[in-house]
Design a protein around this nucleic acid. Structure first.
Lengths: 228, 228
DNA sequence: ACCCGGATATGATAATTATCATGACATGAC
DNA sequence: GTCATGTCATGATAATTATCATATCCGGGT
């Protein structure tokens, strides 16, 4: 039993450090399970009963919903230290979205029951979780509003900036999404995502080498995202 | 001091009933303040510091964001017993949306500090709030995804059904939104909302008398919302 | 009563976006 | 290696939606 929880960056642990004594720490950690997933693997299936409280330890995953017609909409992308099971985790018995791995990923799963009883005992932890949930929900909602009011070029620009500044912290990175997935994220068609990327390339804003994207002119991209 | 909290339907009180002893009930209720607003009045201004935990006692309000350019986007509509200050209330110090009254409304405001200290003491209350927040955030996010994938007719149909089945519980009601606000809610232009309503009227789906809407053919409307 | 501003309404046109068609290219199965 | 499948790519066209122009209607203020 390792009360330091073994995952060094673990945000959950950060929460615990502020609040939990050794005993409670052990309760959580003794039930902790890590799970590995390969790129493309499904981590959570819509409609499944929620059993774990889980967050992403490494990799990248998408949260999405799929139509009866088969079309998918990506709700958000979770990166390491984001919760995988945050939405609806404390409300319903079932996931109302699916999760799958965009890259090889490792999740950290805690027993829902342990978390519940901990919150029950420890109000400070509850406040932290409430705060965190507020932020996550807010972010998703506000981003969705932002995207909705943009035109195609603005949406693609927004997405590229998002990856560059929020996920990878560099101007050159491998796109973790296919063009189809990018389209599903920002609500447009695959063809138009491709076309828009081509335009950006022709305009010298991007350099594209297969899956690798290099943002050559961040200022232009930003201005397209905001105004164009 | 009235520990029964005077607002009979109060959902918050429902939460409390399960969890709070008389003493805690009094803490909350002694700090409780009701505020009245006239139609059109602004209840919360984006960027303001969050001071209260408040919910709607009666009336109807809209939560919305406004651009630098002046355009507004409606995030959601809160009806009695919905929280007015739910989003971001536990996370940031400032509201990132505005709230204004669509009808004459009364809010019930509790002191943030009281709620915090209560949660701190009472884990069961925290679990209830986490559950409620999950549900609210989920609903907003999923509705926004639903709306996004529909065409104009589908969006307007969706909105009308929403009012009919979720807010007013009748097929004939007074629209609490102007056409402009309807447009801001579902992400389309005012002209197209008007046009679409006219089409519905011509098709015999709606009867429109000024602000009063009567849904004459709910089946058609539903099928337009889902498929058309 | 009148005027005024905003909301409602409708048409014509322009802009945006989706759909359909086609082909190149890559990658994994065999 | 070849084949097959899916992604990437681009053009032509159709559909959808926004913009602009204009007119009517209605309620509040004087």
């Amino acid at each position: 039993m390792d009360p330091s929880c073994s995952c060094e960056l673990c945000e959950l642990r950060e929460l615990f450090v502020q609040n939990l004594d050794e005993e409670n720490m052990e309760i959580i950690c003794s039930g902790k399970v890590e799970k590995e997933y390969r790129t493309g693997e499904i981590i959570v299936k819509e409609g499944t009963r929620i059993q774990d409280f889980s967050y992403l330890k490494s990799g990248l995953v998408k949260l999405y919903r799929s139509d009866p017609s088969g079309r998918e909409q990506i709700i958000t992308i979770a990166k390491p230290m984001d919760y995988v099971s945050l939405l609806s985790v404390f409300s319903d018995k079932k996931y109302n979205y699916s999760v799958s791995a965009l890259e090889d990923s490792v999740t950290c799963n805690l027993k829902m029951e342990d978390i519940r009883s901990l919150i029950h005992k420890d109000g400070k932890l509850a406040l932290n979780l409430l705060g965190k949930m507020s932020r996550v929900a807010d972010t998703i909602i506000l981003e969705s509003l932002e995207i909705r009011k943009k035109h195609l070029r603005g949406r693609v620009a927004y997405l590229l900036i998002y990856f560059s500044e929020t996920v990878f912290y560099t101007k050159e990175f491998d796109l973790p999404l296919t063009r189809k997935e990018m389209a599903e994220y920002v609500g447009m068609t695959t063809e138009n995502v491709i076309r828009t990327l081509s335009e950006f390339r022709k305009d010298g804003i991007l350099k594209i080498y297969g899956k690798t994207i290099q943002i050559a002119n961040m200022d232009s991209l930003r201005s397209i995202s905001e105004f164009g």
